[in-house]
Nucleic acid binder design. Structure first.
Length: 548
DNA sequence: TCGGAAAGCGCC
DNA sequence: AAAGGGCGCTTTCCGA
C-alpha cells in the first residue's frame, strides 16, 4: 500500500492512499501540524510513504517520534529513471522536463528572505508514482531499477535519521586534541605551535615576510631562497633538501586541521554533544553520497578521538574491506578474483594466489585497474593483474573503451553515467585540438571505468545500510516516544564503505553480528549467489579512534 | 566590493 | 610514499 503525501496549499497536507496496483482507495486532508500524529497511526500498516522529497517531510516526523519503514523519494527516483539507459525507451524518458526534474528541496536558512515566499504546491505525487512505476515496468531491467530506486529511497531516510540522531561528539576531547597538536589557542592569531613554525619558516627562508598561508607569495619566497619549485604542494616539496621543508610541511598539516576542523568548526557544527552534518544522498553522479556542510565525508583521522559513545553505550564501527575490488569480482564474475577474496584480506589473497609478490603490489595494481592508472607501481602491475584476473580486467577495459568512444555506461543496478561532451567529427581540426580530444577521451575513459565500480560499490553500501537498518529496528531497545530512534541501537555515521552504530553496551555484540549479516545480505540482494565474500571489519569501541 | 576560480589537502 | 577515479571545504587571488 502506498500513501502519497503532498501539500496542496500552505499548511495543508493531502494524503492519497493507493493499493498495490496503484488504484486510489482513499484521500484525506489535514492541517500540516496534525500530520505526524496521523502518520504514526498509519505506520502500523507498513505503508510505503511516497513524497517528492524526504528532506521536506521526514524531519518533522522524526521530531514527533515517528520513524517510518519505507518510502519512495520521487525526486531522487525521477533523476535515476530520467537518466537510466535501461529506461530510455519509456514514456517517462520521452516526456518533457517538469518540476519533478528540479533540484531537491533546500530548507531555507533561518531568517532568510525565502521564508516569506509562498512555497510552490507539490505536483500530484500519486500520478508521478504511477509514471515511475510504469517506466520501471517498461524498462529492460525492471528488477534492477526497482531495487535501485528502493535503495536510494532508503538512503534518503537514513540520511535524515543520521542528522536527527547526530554523531556523538565530545567537544572537550576535541579541544584537547587541538591544543595538543596546534598549541594553545591565541585570540585573533595563529595557535602557538603554528606561530612557532611560521618563525622557523621565515628564518629558514631568510624572509621575515614569508606567509605560508598564501601559495603565490610563498612560491615566490621559496624561489627567492633558491628552491626550484613550480608549486607549493606537499608532493613537490617533499622531495627537496632544504631547512624550510620540514617546518613548512609540518605547518601545512597543522593549518589544515586548524582551518577545516579547528575551534571554528567545533563552534559551528557540534552542539549538545552531537555533530550534525548535512548529507546529500546520491549527491555524486556515481550515486555516492555527498555532504553539504560539516564535511562529514572528510572527517580527518586526527579528530576521530572526539567521537565518543555516551556512558553505558558503545560505538560499533564497521568497514567493508576492499569493497571496490570485491564488487568488481562480483560484477565481472571473475572466479579467480572471487577466490582471492575468500581471504578476509583480498590483497593478501592475491599474493597467496601467486598473482603478485607483495600486498602493496596487489593494492596498487588493483587500484590502478579500477582507476585507470598507467604509471608507477600500478602500471608495472598491470600485465600481472590482467593475467591473473582476465574477466575483471576485461570488464573495466570495456567500460573505459565505451567512455573513450563517447558512450555512456551503467552500474550494476542501472544508474547511468552523464553524457559526455559530444566532440563531433571534424576533419579540419588542428593538431592541438586532436591532442586535446585524445586527452579528454582518455580522461573520460578513466571516468567511466571508475564509474561502474564506484557506482556499484555505492549500491552495495545502500543495500548494506538498508538491511542493517531493518535488523537494528528488530533488535529493539527503549521505546521512549520522544526518542524513537535514539533510545535503541541506531546509525550515526556513514562514509562510503563504513558505518557506525551507537548502541547500548548490552546490545553491542548483537549489533556487530547484524553488521556482518547485513553485509552478506547486501551481496546476495545485488548479485545473487556469487562466490564473492563481502568481508567487513567490525570493532566495538568507546571512541572512533580505537577502530583500526 | 563581490563572487567565482584555483590551490591545496582532507576523506573514500 | 607512490597515481589513477569521485568528492567538500577553506583560503587566497583576481577580474568584473
Amino acid at each position: 500500500m502506498f500513501l502519497a503525501v503532498s501539500s496542496p496549499a500552505r499548511g495543508i497536507v493531502e494524503v492519497v492512499e493507493l493499493d498495490a496496483r496503484g488504484g486510489e482507495t482513499a484521500r484525506e486532508r489535514m492541517p500540516e501540524a496534525a500530520f505526524p500524529e496521523w502518520a504514526r497511526g498509519r505506520e502500523a500498516d507498513h505503508p510505503r510513504w511516497v513524497w517528492a522529497d524526504t528532506r521536506r517531510w521526514y524531519p518533522a516526523l522524526l521530531d514527533a517520534g515517528v520513524r517510518v519503514e519505507r518510502c519512495v523519494d520521487l525526486r531522487m527516483c525521477r533523476l535515476i529513471l530520467r537518466n537510466a539507459a535501461a529506461a530510455s525507451g519509456t514514456e517517462l524518458a520521452r516526456s518533457p522536463r517538469d518540476r519533478w526534474d528540479a533540484p531537491a528541496h533546500v530548507p531555507a536558512a533561518s531568517g532568510a528572505l525565502f521564508e516569506l515566499e509562498e512555497p510552490e504546491p507539490d505536483d500530484d505525487p500519486a500520478a508521478e508514482l504511477l509514471r515511475q512505476r510504469a517506466a520501471i515496468a517498461d524498462s529492460g531491467t525492471p528488477g534492477r531499477l526497482s531495487l535501485l530506486t528502493a535503495a536510494d529511497s532508503v538512503g534518503a531516510l537514513v540520511a535524515i535519521e543520521l542528522e536527527h540522531a547526530g554523531l556523538p561528539w565530545d567537544a572537550a576531547r576535541h579541544d584537547r586534541i587541538l591544543v595538543e597538536v596546534l598549541g594553545e589557542r591565541m585570540p585573533g592569531g595563529r595557535p602557538a605551535r603554528m606561530e612557532a613554525l611560521v618563525g622557523r619558516i621565515r628564518a629558514a627562508l631568510e624572509d621575515p615576510q614569508a606567509n605560508p598561508d598564501s601559495p603565490p607569495t610563498l612560491l615566490r619566497s621559496l624561489q627567492r631562497a633558491g628552491l626550484r619549485v613550480s608549486s607549493t604542494s606537499r608532493w613537490e616539496l617533499a622531495g627537496l633538501e632544504h631547512p624550510v621543508i620540514e617546518p613548512l610541511l609540518a605547518y601545512k598539516k597543522l593549518a589544515r586541521l586548524f582551518t577545516a576542523n579547528g575551534w571554528a568548526w567545533l563552534d559551528e557544527w557540534v552542539h549538545d554533544g552531537r555533530f550534525r552534518p548535512v548529507y546529500v544522498p546520491a549527491g555524486v553522479v556515481t550515486g555516492r553520497w555527498a555532504s553539504d556542510g560539516g564535511g562529514a565525508l572528510q572527517l580527518p583521522r586526527q579528530v576521530r578521538g572526539a567521537v565518543v559513545a555516551d556512558p553505558g553505550w558503545k560505538l560499533v564501527v564497521a568497514d567493508a574491506a576492499q569493497l571496490e575490488p570485491r564488487v568488481l569480482a562480483a560484477m565481472s564474475r571473475d572466479a579467480a578474483m572471487a577466490r582471492a577474496g575468500r581471504a578476509h584480506d583480498l590483497y593478501q589473497g592475491m599474493v597467496d594466489a601467486g598473482a603478485v609478490e607483495t600486498r602493496s603490489q596487489a593494492k596498487y595494481g588493483m587500484l590502478g585497474a579500477i582507476y585507470g592508472g598507467t604509471t608507477g607501481e600500478a602500471g608495472r602491475m598491470r600485465p600481472r593483474i590482467e593475467r591473473a584476473f582476465p574477466r575483471a580486467m576485461a570488464f573495466v577495459e570495456a567500460a573505459a573503451r565505451a567512455g573513450e568512444a563517447g558512450e555512456q555506461v551503467s552500474t550494476w543496478l542501472g544508474r547511468t553515467s552523464p553524457r559526455g561532451r559530444d566532440a563531433g567529427y571534424d576533419e579540419t581540426r588542428s593538431d592541438d585540438e586532436r591532442a586535446r580530444e585524445l586527452r579528454d577521451g582518455r580522461a573520460r575513459g578513466r571516468f567511466t571505468r571508475n564509474f561502474v565500480v564506484q557506482g556499484t560499490a555505492a549500491e552495495w553500501a545502500l543495500c548494506w545500510m538498508g538491511a542493517l537498518r531493518r535488523m537494528l529496528w528488530q533488535l529493539g531497545g527503549g521505546d521512549a516516544a520522544d526518542a524513537v530512534l535514539t533510545a535503541r541501537p541506531h546509525l550515526v555515521f556513514f562514509l562510503h564503505d563504513e558505518l557506525i552504530v551507537h548502541a547500548p553496551a548490552g546490545l553491542a555484540d548483537a549489533v556487530a553480528e547484524a553488521m556482518r549479516a547485513s553485509a552478506a545480505e547486501a551481496g546476495r540482494i545485488l548479485f545473487g549467489e556469487v562466490p564473492v565474500d563481502f568481508a567487513v571489519t567490525v570493532a566495538v569501541v568507546d571512541s572512533y579512534a580505537e577502530a583500526k
